[in-house]
Write a protein that binds this DNA or RNA. Structure first.
Lengths: 392, 392
DNA sequence: CTCTTATGTTCTACCATCAAACATAATTTT
DNA sequence: AAAATTATGTTTGATGGTAGAACATAAGAG
């Protein structure tokens, strides 16, 4: 299929673009800007800035507040992302269902968490639980809800079709239809991979405000090993939504068989079960392996060594291929980062082609069980920020 | 560094965008369109289409031709990409320097090729040879040259800084400054990695006209193994221009040492020298390994087996990570594709996570020694197509 | 030769931004 | 306390690009 050329644009597209630019600037700003600040930053006249801002304020996408510290000249009315506008983020993972409602400012206005073994429920029961959790969260909200998104530990294509979620036992499911309408949030605006959406919370400090690092690999240790590639501030999803499966990079072609059909996948070394077995601890105690190794537990020390080696082989290849030299560890891998960091950094330095010019940066993500839900909410709010005209 | 928000746009940006859209449509069209065709396709009035087209015709970016087959109604004047506008593409590889000049229609209007051992020359001598080759090609050209680009077997950052080119022995070099102005083409508009630019010739059928596959991995067997990732019609370059180094994906962590400092890189199995040694043939005869294996040469058959396995391990990981399931083989790997295809496809099917849902597609690129030069020219012409207003 | 048909052109209307003068609300100075 | 200063925000008309509709043009069809 040849790529169809987009349409030409008229003046209303111009206004839509500029509305988006203004809202982006308000969301991305470190300090609340005035109309005049926006005018200089965006290189338009104050007249135009006013016009655009007023439209956003009328629509509730931007709030006006009175200035705090006095300055010379007429006091500027400061602008903040609208607090009367929020989005619902959902996670359905093997051990929990979480619903969180975030405003355009990134403030949490509602949260419901259910700790359940979702793998034990059948598909219909699981979906019902997600719906129920979402409705409970929405009942706590009195402001305008612009939409909902769902994070799933599986491959999601086109932002709605769940191709497979091995741990949940779900597959071939149109999530938007399956979940159905959720009260004031309506149908799901999007469904996506858990790690991909979690990565959004690492990428952004708040909705529409990018953090310090626009490029990184996110590797999250959960039951398996999830991952995401973030390049130039965008999550790479690949052709069918399956990008970022760092858990199934081959560490050793003769290694142990993986449920994916291949052998020696990273997940067989860094997944929770595999890691616990190697270290001789219960799966729920994987976070303690680092401390135990330091305390002299030889089996844990060996497990950390093997884990480090497996990570360096897998991450080294990925860094070489995608040319991104920041790695963010999440989940139990993030919590083990202090124990891994030094040796892993050294080994990556040896395996990465450009390490001499661009050393590999290792960081731990401060992610929580609710991160994928926050990421899902971010995704919905991003839609608003990208096209505010649709919400006025 | 926080990502700075872009400027707002005025009406002249509107016109620039629409000029680009029209030129893109003309270049991408299967058959030369009329002004009316463009108007309907781009959803503007015929008045606007005319206005935009006229501007492009005046600037020489679009040519008008008389219709060939008679139809009912006033005959339409057909539009083609301007033939009076061309770009210079250059390659400096270990065994050759090639200069090619392509028009906006993709027609070759000049070519100069020098077969030399560029590795034997020092850096200054090599650069001089590139300049000389370029000037010779430009002398054959009588139409307007919009710029030049250079393909190099190495890592190029920011489109101009050569970080390292191990095979050439060049490093830490601002290529734009080092090459200097090239007659009517001026300074290099861009320098880039050879495989990345070669991939553009696979991606496009002609400048501005996308081929059938917007997503693929390009793996090219040369002295080493180059690669490129093409996602949604764009070559992924990564943080520092080093993306796509598929040659240094780890196939076996205990494999032979690689010059990159790691062990068991794909290049140690699929590079020309390594492959020739494994098969017991001269490096210049690697293309014959497939036939020899079929003819009963056991050493060649074993080499093909090992190569297939190494490729499946490396490509399997990459496909899992970047979520792209089309693989295009180039260089000697492309020429060996008939011998590899069947078994490699099978093994990839086992290693790739989503193979059941999106089977891996294997293809051979019809690339030639001049492909990187064509790709370089494409890159320059792409700039014109993306912002025609700069060339009017 | 006239009718039909589709292309390309001309004209006015609309609207978003620009430019510049104006109004406003504070601090600073007299 | 009143005037000057300063920066913000608003109003006004000008510019310019596209939309819409009528018009002109160049062929084939009858």
């Amino acid at each position: 299929m040849a790529v169809t050329t987009g349409s030409a644009v008229g003046q209303h597209t111009l206004r839509e673009t500029n509305l988006a630019t203004v809202l982006q600037a308000v969301c991305a700003a470190d300090a609340p800007p005035s109309r005049a600040d926006l005018a200089t930053q965006l290189m338009v006249t104050r007249a135009t800035a006013t016009r655009l801002v007023d439209e956003l304020v009328d629509g509730g996408l931007v709030d006006e507040i009175d200035p705090v510290e006095p300055r010379r000249g007429r006091p500027a009315k400061l602008l903040l992302p609208g607090a009367g506008l929020c989005a619902l983020g959902l996670v359905a993972d093997i051990d929990r269902v979480v619903a969180r409602v975030l405003t355009l400012r990134g403030e949490v206005v509602a949260e419901v968490r259910q700790d359940v073994d979702l793998g034990a429920l059948d598909q219909e029961g699981g979906l019902a639980l997600v719906r129920e959790t979402a409705e409970q969260a929405l009942e706590q909200v009195s402001v305008r809800v612009v939409g909902a998104a769902l994070a799933i530990p599986g491959v999601v294509a086109d932002g709605r079709t769940l191709v497979r979620a091995p741990n949940l036992g779900w597959s071939n499911l149109d999530l938007v239809d399956a979940i159905g309408p959720l009260g004031s949030a309506g149908h799901l605006a999007e469904a996506g991979n858990e790690a991909d959406l979690s990565a959004l919370t690492v990428l952004h400090d708040a909705p529409g405000r990018m953090g310090t690092w626009p490029d990184f690999l996110f590797v999250s240790g959960t039951v398996g090993v999830g991952g995401a590639i973030v390049s130039r501030g965008r999550v790479v999803v690949g052709e069918h939504g399956g990008a970022g499966e760092i858990g199934h990079v081959c560490v050793d072609p003769d290694g142990p068989a993986c449920r994916c059909g291949s052998r020696g996948c990273l997940e067989r070394y860094a997944g929770r079960e595999a890691l616990a077995r190697a270290a001789g601890v219960a799966p729920s105690d994987v976070d303690t392996i680092g401390d135990r190794a330091l305390a002299g537990d030889h089996r844990c020390a060996a497990a950390v060594r093997d884990l480090t080696r497996a990570l360096s082989v897998a991450l080294g290849s990925v860094v070489n291929v995608v040319g991104i030299s920041s790695v963010v560890l999440g989940g139990h891998l993030g919590r083990l980062e202090p124990a891994l960091s030094h040796t892993l950094g050294e080994q990556l330095g040896a395996r990465v082609l450009g390490a001499r010019w661009a050393p590999v940066q290792l960081r731990a993500a401060g992610d929580t069980p609710a991160s994928p839900a926050d990421g899902a909410a971010y995704r919905v709010l991003e839609n608003v920020i990208r096209q505010p005209s649709a919400w006025l």
